[in-house]
Amino acid sequence: MPASRLPARLDVLQSASGVFLALFMWLHMFFVSSILLGKDAFWHVARFFEGYHIFGKPYPILVSGVALFVFAMFIFHAALAMRKFPADYREYSAFRKHAGEMKHGDTTLWFVQVYTGFAMFFLGSVHLYTMMTRPETIGPYGSADRIVTDWFWPLYLLLLFAVELHGSIGLYRVAVKWGWLEGRNPAATRRNMKRAKWLITVFFLTLGLLSLAAYIKIGIDHRPNYGEHYVPPSIEEPLEPRQ
């Protein structure tokens, strides 16, 4: 009986699901940060994903579908990556001691990935479930109300740090793991990729923190009118399908 090919397939799928999630998170950040361009910009982005610009009216169920798909990938990736978690206290303390003695960047970064991954089980699930079940509330006021009045800002703040560290470390690791872009001088490539990794983390963290601040400001101002949805001044017809 030849050895099972499953370990090989799972290893590829772990990387593929990780890369999908990391790239999705980049796009996601660009959509979310449209709030920095104003309420109208974000309103259009949110409605775009509900098909408003194609069908002439919004279908939030489309967003539920996307959220469901991402949630599935998220669970799939977590299930595969979990295999690498230290399995018990002995393994955990062996790794911790090792990382402390070695003072070796990539070894420590793996620990960061395990911690942030673990945190995302909880943080990411809350967010994804909300997006899946309340897609119609996504908008300049709805999202800001959620962040301020519904107390999502601490969750998003932690999730932001977890995703931006985990995702870019993960992309760096996938590249060295499979030898992508290695070139003639793998050591130099690795140094450059590591530099790029930090730049990416700082860039998305900054964008994320600025966006979160913008939502918090809107949310505070909008607290008295909690629940009311934003409608851009240029839009005349009612958005909800007529009864």
């Binding site: 030849p2 050895a3 090919r5 370990p7 070695m102 070796h104 990539d106 793996w110 060295v176 690795r190």
Partner: peptide, 22 residues
Amino acid sequence: FYELVGSDDGVFGCMTLLGCND
């Protein structure tokens, strides 16, 4: 070769920490 290293105790167990390389 897969019979010898094609498992989670073999190549797929490596988490690319690169302590070895360094």
